[in-house]
Amino acid sequence: MTGRAAEAVSVHSLRRSDVPVTASLPVLSTKGLSLVYDGARGQHLAVDNVGLEIAQGERLVLLGPSGCGKSTILKAVAGFHSPASGTISLRGKPVSGPGPDRVVVFQEFDQLLPWKTALGNVMFPLLRARKLSRTEARQQAEDALERVGLTRALNQFPHELSGGMKQRVAIARALAMRPDVLLMDEPFAALDALTRSRLQADLLRVVEDAKATLLFVTHSIEEALLIGTRLHLLSAHPGRTLATLDVAGLIPASPAFTRAKTEVHDLLFPQAEAADV
């Protein structure tokens, strides 16, 4: 599987990059990660032998069809799910459970606590996990909400916000924590197309400003190319590494971008390529 993928990449324009360009210690790495899920008919292997490395300031996108275990990998990195085998390390130290050094932005809108205002939601982890004073927490929360463009909704409760605004609050809450790595699990999948593209652009801007390190999960090739500096492609049932591609500096809607989309598609679905011919 891996061999064929490597071969396919070499004849195309995207550069294969199994290791990050920087030589420094990766912020996050997994080695030989396998994950098992308890399903209705007993256990099944969801992820098989996946190795990832994310360098400081990098934006790695896990991309694959549904059933490739990309969300499961993210949950394992977050510490919600323990590996069947292999290791997950954060700055060289093994991950043993959830913690505020890896903040997750989920797809579901109910990730905001409904009994807290937008501001209260962003302040909550700053007070509880970072143990900041109320004044400091308030200042940093207001600052984070301003960066995602939500200065006027500070005192609104989640049910008064649109889906896009809720995701903005969730992004602000995660960014304000300044985690070692920001984990995003298809955060825009439940949004309409217009809102999604605005949030993608705004996310890129705030993540670049904050020089945040990002692990982003999506099944959209376009979104992966927009957000990522590197893509990690996975096959389905179980999730195995297909290829790792360097996609930094692609200009959206440029010919190179369109070409990259086709290439990534062909890597993910090699049989579809054959059927087209």
Partner: peptide, 12 residues
């Protein structure tokens, strides 16, 4: 909701 449980655990 499961998400709210995960959020709580995420923040330790």
């Amino acid at each position: 909701p499961e998400t709210q449980r995960l959020v709580g655990r995420n923040y330790g």
